[in-house]
Nucleic acid binder design. Structure first.
Lengths: 213, 213
DNA sequence: AAACTAAACATACGATCGGTCGTATGTTTA
DNA sequence: TAAACATACGACCGATCGTATGTTTAGTTT
């Protein structure tokens, strides 16, 4: 894996060093937050985990809220790398949708984040807490839903599937994905495979071929 | 509203007083937790809000975990009072399901809990945290889904609706309700009405009449 | 009336929280 | 070479956290 694009063009070695540790902290913060929530983050905890000083973490982010926002963005980036970008290799429309859902299944079961889907775990917490953190989480979810809706639209326009309300279907699909993530976290022993089967069934419900009259 | 059944038969006025304040604390804790999460609860905060001493709260619950479990049960009870029990007046099957969803809509929009649906806000937080709190939340959600699935089954057995997988449909309905709650919390200005329309559309998708051959 | 019990309070503890301050080190720029 | 900048550190602040211990008050039981 190459250098992160945001740090690639930096030549000032001071800023480069900062960007690196900043990203390392944010990525680890996303891991912790997937388990204990963005509110459960603490500067000291992250510093200890990464062998840094608490004040060092503080100088890089300033305030806790900015650290939380950085964690959201790091989680978003990891999600894009694991799910969205690989799926872009598939042709647009129904095929890409199936690939997105399959990759999401791997993403949810595999410990990309130790606490499962980052978005699902934290959006419910912050939906009643105005601020930059909520805004960042909201944008992330909106982009994800728009992506699904867009591919559904492409599939419908190409005649792959029957005509539908893409926004509504995307809302429904995202809802099932969130519930599937929770079910995966709760059901320690059973249902791992069953949950993804349910998800695929919902997707198949939207990917029905159009009636040829 | 009559006395709570758990406190009705208590004659010892010391225990009665304790049960009352215990319930008052638990109910307020549910309100706070709907906004800031069960982890965000604190003994001192609750004591201050209710004009009690911090140690007084501690005496009644012992440990924070027990307070959290009590908050879950208080929230569950409030939910049953607001949504489930009134809906039992409707005839079983499709009619009761529609009533349940409508009452849930009122429950989610009206500030029964200031932070919206208690279950949706906290289950996502605790799904990766083993313990009595997670177990209590899990039982609560399972009961709710079983209730929906049971009514769907009744409707199907009575021939009101087409045959279906009741468990799968209940999973899907609950997922949409959770997502609707989040959407309601996020969309400050727009979509209040639109969200419930989406929910009704999903329900209608399951309440299709059977094909008469 | 005495013994007992539960609720409620007061105090104190160790720990951790987010944040501020001053300082040292390394890097770039003028 | 000197000034400016960015990272990183250690020490410390006031506040809050959960919890433990002992005491007071109200009510019950014997």
């Amino acid at each position: 894996m190459t250098e992160h694009p945001a740090t690639a063009e930096i030549v000032d070695r001071r800023l480069l060093r900062g960007a690196r540790t900043r990203h390392a902290i944010a990525r680890h913060a996303a891991d912790v937050a997937s388990l204990e929530g963005l509110t459960g983050l603490s500067l000291g905890r992250l510093a200890t985990d990464l062998g840094l000083s608490k004040s060092g973490v503080q100088t890089l982010f300033g305030t806790k809220e900015k650290l939380q926002v950085a964690a959201v963005e790091a989680a978003r980036e990891a999600f894009l790398d694991a799910v969205v970008r690989p799926a872009l290799a598939a042709p647009p429309g129904a095929a890409r949708l199936r690939e997105l859902i399959e990759l999401w299944g791997v993403y949810a079961e595999t410990p990309l984040f130790p606490g499962g889907c980052f978005r699902a775990a934290n959006l419910a917490d912050f939906d009643s807490r105005p601020g930059q953190v909520r805004d960042a989480l909201f944008r992330d979810q909106r982009d994800w839903r728009d992506l699904i809706a867009g591919e559904l639209r492409k599939a419908a326009d190409a005649g792959e599937i029957a005509e539908l309300d893409a926004g509504f279907a995307a809302f429904q699909l995202d809802a099932v994905l969130c519930a599937a993530n929770t079910a995966l976290r709760l059901g320690d022993k059973l249902g791992d495979k069953l949950v993804m089967i349910k998800v695929r069934r919902v997707l198949d419900g939207f990917l029905t071929p159009p009636v040829t009259t």
